[in-house]
Amino acid sequence: MTDMKSALAAASDRFSLLAYCLLALVSIWWAGSYLLIKIAVVDVPPATLATARLLIASSVLLVWLRLSRAGSLPSKLGSWAGYARIALFGHALPLYLIAWASMTVPVREMAILVATTPLFAAFFAHVSQREWPSSATVFGLLVGFFGLAAFLGHSAGSILHSNASAAPRLALFAAAASYALSSSSVARLKDANAIVTGTAVMICAIPMLLPLSLAFERPWAIAPTAPALTALLLLGVMSTAVVYVAYYRLIRLSGPAFASMHHYLVPAASITLGAVFLDERLDLDQIAFMTPVIASVFIARGLISRKL
């Protein structure tokens, strides 16, 4: 019995370590994605940008699926209903809204607004279970949110006192809510294969955005510059294909509420990456504000039920 308990504890530790590693990977790469979107959207309109990301990602994942022999796409039409729901709320809608908002909203503001995703995730999860969040769950989520708000308030000023248009910012709140809905749908999927899930979802999302791109943005007339094209390729291959597969694995491993905590880490990671690669100044105040944000992830890991 003792040996069995030890084995179970060791397995739990391995899963916890993997969850943290996947969360770090997703956070760091998606921190850079906001910068890539800013570069690409200069030459590529929002719907076309989102559609191109999905086309590139689905191509990469189809090759990956075939070479890895990890599984196959479902053959029955009814099996695609779950994938279509994830495609709408996890890709088509938020990718377009974020790309559209990026034309006017600074990167740091984008990050903090989308960082409300964990709060939406907890709210939707508890509403679907017809019960309200426990005080412990609320505490773990709010520690990260208020730490993040203080951190970005120090760095970029308060969003609430901004005189800019509210529409792009409301769009980012909508993207956060959409991501939360998608995470819950991923957690309920019977198929645990992240590559199959990612491939099917990308394929479903393309026809949701392609008509918008063709009707209003004339993609055949676009001539992107080299930086925009490079940013688009990185967004498609890494941010939309590879990292989403890691994200789906994280959701299956730890649940959507914990997985959505990457939104808390992305803004801090963006500042850190800027300090490392762009020689931007990182002062002690910024480091102090990062502390509760990072701590909230460990708090949430212990407080949030895997049922979320």
Rank of each mutant, 00 (worst) to 15 (best):
G144D: 03
G144N: 04
G144P: 02
G144S: 06
F145R: 01
F145G: 02
F145K: 01
F146M: 05
F146A: 01
F146V: 09
F146G: 00
G147M: 03
G147I: 06
L148D: 01
L148H: 00
L148M: 14
A149K: 03
A149I: 14
A149S: 14
A149M: 15
A150T: 04
A150S: 09
L152C: 01
L152M: 08
G153Y: 03
G153P: 00
G153Q: 02
G153R: 02
H154D: 03
S155D: 11
S155L: 13
A156T: 12
A156E: 12
G157H: 06
G157Y: 09
S158G: 14
S158F: 13
S158L: 15
S158Q: 11
S158E: 05
I159N: 03
I159H: 02
I159D: 01
L160E: 04
L160Q: 02
L160Y: 05
L160A: 12
H161Y: 05
H161L: 14
S162A: 13
S162N: 09
S162L: 08
A164K: 05
A164Q: 11
S165A: 15
A166C: 04
A167H: 07
P168Y: 07
P168M: 06
R169P: 00
R169V: 00
L170D: 08
L170A: 14
A171H: 04
A171T: 05
L172H: 02
L172A: 06
L172P: 02
L172Y: 04
F173P: 02
F173D: 07
F173L: 15
A174T: 14
A174N: 08
A175N: 05
A175C: 09
A176H: 02
A176C: 04
A176Y: 08
A177F: 01
A177Y: 02
S178C: 11
S178I: 13
S178D: 12
Y179H: 05
Y179F: 15
A180E: 07
L181K: 03
S182Y: 09
S182D: 07
S182H: 07
S182F: 10
S182T: 09
S183T: 14
S183F: 15
S184I: 14
S184Q: 13
S185W: 06
S185K: 08
V186W: 05
V186Y: 04
A187F: 06
A187P: 00
R188S: 12
R188P: 02
R188N: 12
L189W: 07
L189D: 04
L189Y: 01
L189A: 11
K190S: 15
D191L: 09
D191M: 07
A192V: 12
A192G: 11
N193T: 11
N193F: 10
N193D: 13
N193C: 10
A194L: 10
A194S: 15
A194Y: 12
A194T: 11
I195G: 00
I195Y: 00
I195K: 04
T197R: 15
T199P: 05
T199V: 07
A200R: 12
A200D: 12
A200S: 15
A200M: 11
A200V: 09
V201N: 13
V201W: 12
V201C: 14
M202V: 15
I203W: 08
C204P: 03
A205Q: 11
A205M: 15
A205P: 07
I206K: 06
P207V: 06
P207Q: 07
M208G: 06
M208E: 11
L209C: 09
L210D: 10
L210A: 14
L210V: 04
L210W: 10
